[in-house]
Structures are given as structure tokens and as C-alpha cells.
């Protein structure tokens, strides 16, 4: 299959959108904005999936992320130190190492992606969603079911970990205040 110019344009546009919004996640100081920039990044990738004929997966990704990112935002409001919204917050460490690691992994992966030759066997015309459905409930049923069971186990496990009364008794027994004073420690 030969993608038309429209596909090129859409993929490039959404691609730039996904990268820029992904970058903005770590550039904003608002917890709400960080969570929703991440969602925008996911939505852009979802749109790219739709352009690449994986309609169902793209939409499912968008559907999932809207809920998950709101939960993210609420957790950030819960656990970050100032819930009042747009308050200042620059909290980074080992900044230089991180930048090097990020740029390095980008260069390596992009290099591999551009240089390496991949077989040219495009998706045949037809309904990819139907094919996926038949795969899920046919040959790969075990994988699909395992994912379901894993999710169930995680649900139970997550509640057990987060609940006050844990497996080893009350979460407060044996706990101590952190020893490092983050207010004065300048380690970035």
C-alpha cells in the first residue's frame, strides 16, 4: 500500500503534536497541565494509529487515556505538595544526566529507525478491526484472557497495597519520618 500525501501530512502533524505535548509535560509547573499534556500526547498517537488503519486501537487508546489522565491529575493534586493549582514547582534532580540519557536514547533509536531496512509488507486492504477481533477470540485467546486475569490480580493487589490495613498489619507500625531535609538539600 502506498500512503497518499494526506496520510503523510496527518502523520507528520500528529507526530509533531505528540512530541511537543510530550515535551510540555515536563516543562509546565501546573499539575493539571502536566497530566493533560500527556493526554494530548496520547490522543495524538491515537490519531496516528487511526491514520495507520488501526481505527479501533487508536480510539481505545484515546478512550482509556481520558480516564487515566484525570486519575493522574487527581493523584498529583493529592500527593504533590501544593494543591492550589498553578503554584510554582520545579522539582528535578540529576538534570544533566537525564538530558544526556534522553537525547542519547533518541539519537540511537532514531538512527536505527532511519538506517535499518525493514521488510515492506503493508497491511492489506480490509477491516483490521475484524481481524483483531478474530485474533483476540481465536488463536490468541489465551493472551487476551491472561491480560484480563492480570488486570484483575492488579486490582486486588493495588487495593491491598494502598489500603491502610496491610498484609503485615497497620501501615503505621514501624514507620518513620524521612531523614533528609528536602527544603535545604540542593542536589539538582
Amino acid at each position: 500500500m502506498n500512503p497518499g500525501p494526506l496520510s503523510y501530512f496527518l502523520v507528520s502533524a500528529f507526530g509533531i503534536g505528540a512530541v511537543v505535548s510530550g515535551w510540555l509535560v515536563f516543562r509546565t509547573d501546573s499539575m493539571l497541565r502536566a497530566a493533560y499534556w500527556l493526554m494530548v500526547s496520547f490522543v495524538a498517537v491515537g490519531a496516528m494509529l487511526i491514520v495507520l488503519d488501526a481505527q479501533f486501537l487508536g480510539l481505545i487508546l484515546i478512550l482509556m487515556m481520558s480516564g487515566e489522565m484525570t486519575i493522574m491529575a487527581i493523584f498529583m493534586i493529592l500527593f504533590m505538595m501544593n494543591p492550589a493549582g498553578l503554584n510554582p514547582m520545579t522539582m528535578v534532580h540529576q538534570h544533566r544526566t537525564s538530558i544526556i540519557a534522553g537525547v542519547g536514547s533518541f539519537i540511537v533509536l532514531a538512527f536505527v529507525g532511519v538506517v535499518a531496512e525493514f521488510p515492506d509488507r503493508p497491511v492489506p486492504a480490509g477491516n483490521a478491526t475484524v481481524a483483531l477481533g478474530e485474533e483476540l477470540l481465536g488463536r490468541s485467546m489465551l493472551v487476551f484472557e491472561s491480560a484480563g486475569v492480570a488486570l484483575l490480580a492488579v486490582m486486588i493487589g493495588a487495593i491491598a497495597i494502598a489500603a491502610k490495613q496491610g498484609r503485615f498489619g497497620d501501615a503505621f507500625d514501624g514507620s518513620e519520618e524521612p531523614s533528609i531535609d528536602v527544603e535545604t538539600g540542593d542536589r539538582s
Binding site: M39, L59, S66
Partner: peptide, 27 residues
């Protein structure tokens, strides 16, 4: 649309985001 039902479902769940940021906005 091919997967119209999923498109609809995704749009309706993002309503949450619209309401949440609208409530958050005015500080």
C-alpha cells in the same frame, strides 16, 4: 464510521476532561 461506536464512547468519556478543566480554570 467504521468504529463509530468507539469514537462516540471515547468522545463521551473525554467530557470528564472538559468539565474538570472548566472547574479548575477559575482558581
Amino acid at each position: 464510521i467504521d468504529a463509530g461506536l468507539v469514537l462516540f464512547g471515547a468522545a463521551m468519556l473525554i467530557v470528564l476532561v472538559a468539565v474538570f478543566i472548566f472547574g479548575w480554570g477559575p482558581n
